Deep mutational scan, measured.
Amino acid sequence: SASLEDVKTAVLGLLVILQTKLYTLPASHATRVYEMLVSHIQLHYKHSYTLPIASSIRLQAFDFLLLLRADSLHRLGLPNKDGVVRFSPYCVCDYMEPERGSEKKTSGPLSPPTGPPGPAPAGPAVRLGSVPYSLLFRVLLQCLKQESDWKVLKLVLGRLPESLRYKVLIFTSPCSVDQLCSALCSMLSGPKTLERLRGAPEGF
């Protein structure tokens, strides 16, 4: 439990870093931090981490990651405290083949985003970082199938509809809506759902 406290501190630090690096160059920093966060949550489900502190780590990670939004130009952003989304000039939600690297070039400044813009690109060529939603999407499927803490599952179920409104997140990387529907149906009809959940409301 003591070591998990250190892990929790590290994860919180990564969330803060991602919130900053999403809007700064090099964009590969945001890509790497995002991948680290998603990989860490995957390990929770792989090794069945069920301690309360592990659940709190997942809760905080999902609470942040499910706020990711994308505009029509595929640029990622996060809402501010007033709910207004600021889109990044440097990070996009497109999935890119590994051989192309985590970044790609664009020939010049991008068109203005639909929300308040981030800082304008400084040079004639900007390297865009790929932060594909499919990585998070796979972890969300694991959550629906394996999550043991009701608070975490409730958060994910509550945030998913709003995330799905931003269709560009889903359609720019390999996210299977069929698998999502299947996971939701299995969660509702499967007898093991109630068996594994802690803290579920009576009558769920």
Rank of each mutant, 00 (worst) to 15 (best):
A125G: 12
Y49N: 02
S107M: 15
V168M: 08
L169R: 03
S111N: 12
H47N: 12
S189C: 11
F137Y: 07
Y34G: 02
P113K: 13
E147H: 00
L194Y: 10
L155C: 12
Q42E: 14
V38M: 09
G13W: 00
L15W: 05
L12V: 14
K151Q: 15
F87A: 05
L184Q: 00
L78P: 00
G199S: 09
S102H: 12
Y34T: 03
L188Q: 02
V168D: 07
L194N: 06
A200H: 09
L68K: 02
V38W: 04
P132C: 06
M96R: 10
S28Q: 13
M36D: 05
T172W: 03
E162F: 11
N80Q: 10
P109F: 12
R69G: 03
A70G: 06
R86L: 08
I57K: 00
V131G: 04
S134W: 06
F204A: 06
G199C: 11
E97Y: 11
L4T: 07
E103Q: 12
R198T: 11
G83L: 05
K104H: 14
L135S: 13
G118I: 14
S148Y: 11
I53E: 03
R198V: 10
S189G: 08
Y166E: 07
Q142S: 14
C175S: 05
L135G: 15
V38S: 04
C93D: 03
P109R: 10
R165L: 06
L110M: 11
S3F: 06
P89V: 04
S130Q: 10
E35C: 12
Q19I: 02
I170N: 03
L157C: 04
M96S: 10
S48N: 15
P89F: 04
Y23A: 04
V33S: 07
K104E: 14
L51Q: 05
E103A: 10
C93L: 06
P52E: 12
R165C: 07
G83K: 07
S28R: 09
S48Y: 12
S55A: 10
G158H: 12
K46V: 13
P109K: 14
P52M: 04
G101H: 15
Y133T: 07
C175A: 04
F171C: 15
S186A: 14
G108R: 11
L68F: 08
W150N: 00
L144I: 15
F171P: 04
A30T: 07
M187Q: 02
L136E: 01
G203L: 05
R69M: 02
L110S: 15
E147T: 00
A125M: 14
G83M: 06
L153P: 00
P191F: 09
F204D: 04
E35N: 10
S148Q: 10
L110P: 11
R198Q: 10
R69D: 02
K21Y: 00
S3T: 13
G190N: 14
P201K: 08
L144D: 00
T193F: 11
Y133H: 06
K21G: 01
Y49G: 01
S3I: 06
S130Y: 14
D149E: 11
K105E: 15
V85Y: 15
L37A: 06
N80H: 09
S56F: 13
S111T: 12
Y133P: 03
P113T: 11
L22K: 02
T50I: 09
P112M: 09
Y45P: 00
L197S: 03
T172P: 04
V131P: 03
A183Y: 07
S163G: 07
V84H: 10
K145A: 11
S55C: 09
T9H: 08
Q19K: 12
L169D: 03
G13S: 03
Q142P: 02
L169P: 04
A54I: 02
S48V: 10
L67W: 09
L76N: 03
S55K: 12
G101L: 12
L197V: 09
V16E: 15
G101K: 09
Y90W: 14
L188Y: 05
K46M: 09
A10I: 00
G101W: 06
R69Q: 08
L160P: 00
Y49R: 02
H74I: 02
T20C: 11
K8A: 11
L188F: 07
K81E: 15
Q146G: 07
L136W: 07
Y45M: 00
P112V: 13
C175D: 05
S39I: 06
L12H: 15
R165K: 12
T50R: 11
L18G: 02
L37C: 08
H44E: 01
H47L: 10
H47S: 11
Y34V: 06
V152Y: 00
M36L: 13
L51G: 07
A27S: 12
S189W: 13
L140I: 13
G190D: 15
G158C: 10
H29A: 05
P79I: 08
Y49C: 03
L12G: 14
R69L: 01
L68P: 03
H40S: 02
A54R: 01
Y133G: 04
A200M: 12
R58N: 00
S107E: 12
V33L: 07
S28L: 08
L12F: 13
L51A: 07
E99D: 14
L78G: 05
S56R: 08
E195W: 07
E195I: 08
A200V: 14
V7S: 03
S186H: 10
L78V: 10
S56L: 12
R165M: 10
V139M: 07
S176F: 08
I41K: 00
L157T: 01
R165T: 08
K154C: 06
V85K: 04
L110T: 12
L180Q: 00
S107Y: 12
D149L: 00
P89A: 07
I41R: 01
G199F: 10
G158E: 15
G199W: 08
Y45C: 00
E103H: 14
T193E: 07
L4M: 12
L78R: 05
C93P: 04
K154T: 05
S107T: 14
S107V: 11
T193C: 14
D149A: 04
T114H: 14
T24W: 15
D178L: 03
Y166P: 03
P79R: 08
S102M: 14
V92S: 07
T24C: 15
L184M: 05
A27F: 08
V139P: 06
L155F: 09
L136Q: 04
V156G: 00
S111M: 11
V152P: 00
S39M: 09
Y34N: 01
R32Y: 03
T114V: 15
Q42R: 12
L22M: 09
D82G: 08
M36P: 00
P109H: 13
L78H: 06
A125N: 14
E202Y: 09
E5M: 09
G108Q: 13
T31W: 05
L25H: 15
T50L: 08
L128H: 13
L14Q: 02
L164F: 03
K105W: 12
K8L: 08
G199N: 12
V131F: 10
P116T: 14
F87Q: 03
Y166H: 11
L76S: 06
L67F: 10
P201E: 11
A200Q: 09
H44T: 00
Q179L: 09
L14A: 08
M187E: 01
P117K: 15
P116R: 13
L164V: 04
W150I: 02
K167Q: 07
K46A: 14
R127K: 14
